[in-house]
């Protein structure tokens, strides 16, 4: 079941580059990354690609296949017509380094600006107790493999270079959400999320959720609940009233705003 695949790969660097056509033999059950590896081993030894696990676990091989942000190792050739030309380009939101490799330092810089977990003391026996239902929401977000495809597709930065400064992006909104839902964490980061991370820039158009290879429901379970939490703090009349008359939920007690 081997056949010749027509590939169009973006080759070049920050100074410029072009889509280049190749033909490479592929066989049944292969993924786009296999085709590129064969290309690398037989025709273009210096084709730059980033990858590690080849199993959708590490989030290294992010690129755009036919204009859609995908993991190359999880994009099966059988999803395409054998006669079709498959176009592979680097992620178009980040500066390119070479060929399919982009400079994703934007994300690492944002990670550095992020608050961290700050738990209270352990129980007297030296262990911590958290119930499964209480950690489950956070666990969904911790499935993130940091492929940054969501950051790549998000139009806030994809289409507006200048927004990069004030916008942490969906990957980090779910980190805020994770911490805010942590049953033992002691910080309140809602103000930070709105101000420093630029939660308000997101217009919930959900592209991040569409591309997430881990199937994390970034918008529904992360961003929107975070926006709602910000509303709790700032815009909800009943919450405000409740606070005034001392009728309020104590679930958030013991947290300090950072």
């Amino acid at each position: 079941m081997a056949y010749d695949l027509k590939l169009r790969v973006w080759r070049g660097d920050a100074e410029g580059g072009d889509l280049t056509d190749y033909t490479v033999e592929v066989s049944e059950g292969e993924v786009v990354l296999d085709a590129l590896h064969r290309l690398q081993a037989t025709q273009t030894g210096d084709l730059a690609i980033r990858w590690n696990c080849k199993a959708g676990k590490c989030g290294s091989c992010s690129a755009e296949v036919n204009g859609r942000p995908r993991l190359m190792c999880m994009t099966r050739l059988s999803d395409f017509d054998p006669a079709e030309t498959i176009t592979v380009t680097p992620m178009r939101t980040f500066p390119v380094i070479r060929d399919l490799v982009t400079d994703v330092s934007f994300n690492y810089e944002k990670a550095r600006e992020l608050p961290y977990a700050e738990l209270g003391p352990r129980d007297p026996d030296g262990k911590r107790r958290m119930m499964q239902v209480d950690v489950e929401r956070g666990q969904e977000f911790r499935k993130c493999i940091e492929c940054y495809l969501c950051q790549d597709v998000c139009h806030v930065v994809r289409d507006h270079e200048d927004n990069k400064q004030h916008f942490a992006g969906p990957r980090f909104f779910i980190r805020y959400a994770e911490l805010d839902m942590h049953p033992l964490d002691t910080h309140d980061r809602r103000r930070l999320a709105q101000d420093a991370a630029g939660l308000g820039m997101c217009n919930i158009t959900k592209c991040c959720t569409e591309v997430c290879p881990e199937g994390i429901r970034i918008t529904d379970n992360g961003i929107i609940p975070m926006k709602e939490r910000v509303v709790d703090r700032k815009y909800d009349p009943l919450v405000w009233l409740g606070n005034k008359i001392g009728l309020r939920n104590r679930d958030d007690d013991g947290r300090t705003e950072v």
């Binding site: 499964q132 950690v135 956070g138 666990q139």
Partner: peptide, 14 residues
Amino acid sequence: EDWGALFDRTEDGL
């Protein structure tokens, strides 16, 4: 766990 890891839990929360 102190640093934020979220392991799966037993019924007692351990």
